[in-house]
Every structure is written in C-alpha cells, then in structure tokens.
C-alpha cells in the first residue's frame, strides 16, 4: 500500500533520514520505535508529505506522491493523521471538527456527515461530547476526538505521531484502547510511539530506527525477545 524507496531528508546540514526503504502492506500495523532524534517522526511526516523529502520516492496506492505533478491533497484524504498535540480546531465544536473535512472535501451532506460522526463518537464512547468545544475536554478525550476526526474521512491508512506522549499517564489507556480496536478492525496503521506494550501486543511489525536509518525490523516477539542489533538491545534495555 505504501512503498518507500531510498527516502532521504536533510534539514540544512542535518541528515535526518538516510535512505529508508520499506513496503507497508494493507492491514499491517507497523510500529516505529527508537531513541529521540532518530528520525521516527520525520519519517512518518514524510509519508503524507507534511515534510518534503529531499530524496527518494514514496508510492501510495500505486501513485508516486513525491512526483512533482502529483496533487497531494487527494491522497491525504485517504491518509488519516493523529498528532502528539491533538491539533483539534479550538473554534469549532467536536461535531464541527469531525464533519468539516467530509463536508467540504467529499461533499457529504450535513446530515450524512453528522450521522457518521455520531456513529464514530459512539464507538470511542464520546457521543455526549458532540456539542462541546475542545477546550472543555481532557487530553485523552481530545486525542480520541482527533482519531475520530481522521476516521471520518474513511482513510485507507492511519498515521499516528506519538499519540500518547502528551497525555497524563491515566489517560494513555483510553487512547490505546481505541487504537487497538482500530487495529482489530483491520485498519492499516503506522504508529510512532514509546508504548512498548502497545508495540508488542498490537504491532504486526516493529521498525527500530536509529540515526536516520531502519536499524532493525521484524515481528514484535522477535525484536523484543531477541534483538540482533546492539543499538536495539541498548535501547530496549533502557525502556523496558
């Protein structure tokens, strides 16, 4: 579904991504782990071109999105993204946050969009918050709304950029639960996270990134039980 070849990203002299190759298939839950500064978030943000790669190619559903002639807005509609800082729109109600993109981009009618939004809110247990403003919600609730907002466009893949890192510890669980449900429903996901429990339990593949490269990848049970790369060993030794 997403095929990345030779992905390269430099910020000035800083070489953040140094030749990433990966092929993500439909239904996979790819969890990206690694020390801070290893390029995990930049890699994820390159996938929907929030960061423009300085080299390499990304092909999404058969279309080269890094090509100059491509209109990325079309593919972004099929790639949901969830941010560390939620980034809900504070001047809109929860319902407006969720329905804005479907109504304006997919020309879904207001009733239809509201119905989809309320169904999704029901699934994350926040149907009673439809009329609230983001400022009235807790961090965990905000992040669940942010996930719903992305889902309302019925994307083919969901990108998560450290979705629980800005949350109070007691709220991490409610967000991970939603993500687990999503994975169980067969959603293709790419997740940058420090939640090793989630990686082990839900991930179908784990990428360990270090110094702008994929240092090691494999199924979670292998990587966690038996890391081959010394850097992976060292990192897991610190976080587990």
């Amino acid at each position: 579904m997403i095929k990345v070849t030779g992905l390269d990203k430099k910020f000035g002299k800083l070489h953040v991504l140094n030749g990433i190759d990966i092929d993500i298939k439909k239904g996979e839950v790819v969890v990206v782990i690694g020390p801070s500064g290893s390029g995990k978030s930049t890699f994820l943000r390159c996938l929907n071109l929030l960061e423009h790669p300085t080299g390499g190619e990304i092909v999404f559903e058969g279309v080269s999105i890094t090509s100059k002639h491509n209109d990325i807005n079309k593919q972004r509609q099929k790639m949901g993204m969830v941010f560390q800082q939620f980034n809900l729109f504070p001047h809109m109600t929860v319902l407006q946050n969720i329905t804005l993109a479907p109504r304006k981009l997919k020309k879904v009618s207001e009733e239809e969009a509201n119905k989809i939004a309320l169904d999704l809110l029901e699934r994350v247990g926040l149907a009673d918050k439809a009329k609230s403003y983001p400022g009235q919600l807790s961090g965990g609730q905000k992040q669940r709304i942010a996930i719903v907002r992305a889902l309302a466009m019925s994307p083919d893949v969901m990108l998560f950029d450290e979705p629980t890192s800005a949350l109070d510890p007691e709220m991490v669980g409610e967000v991970l639960d939603v993500m687990k449900k999503l994975a169980a429903d067969g959603m293709t996901m790419v997740v940058v996270t420090h939640e090793m429990g989630f990686a082990r339990e839900v991930g179908t593949r784990v990428l360990f990134m270090d110094g702008g490269k994929i240092a090691e990848e494999g199924i979670p049970s292998e990587i966690f039980a038996n890391p081959k790369n010394p850097r992976t060993k060292e990192f897991l030794g610190k976080v587990l």
Binding site: N48, L50, R76, Q77, N87, K104, R149
Partner: peptide, 23 residues
C-alpha cells in the same frame, strides 16, 4: 496561530486556501 492547526487541516486533505479560510 499554532503551526499544528495548519498541519492538521492539511493532513485532512484541505488545500492551503481552505485551511486558511476555515481554520
């Protein structure tokens, strides 16, 4: 306005113009 607002809008597929106008 926080940079994340533009990013969130663009990540949903909105054009730069739409993100400016609605967000």
């Amino acid at each position: 306005i926080d940079k994340g607002q533009m990013e969130a809008a663009r990540s949903l597929g909105m054009s730069h113009y739409m993100a400016m106008r609605y967000i």
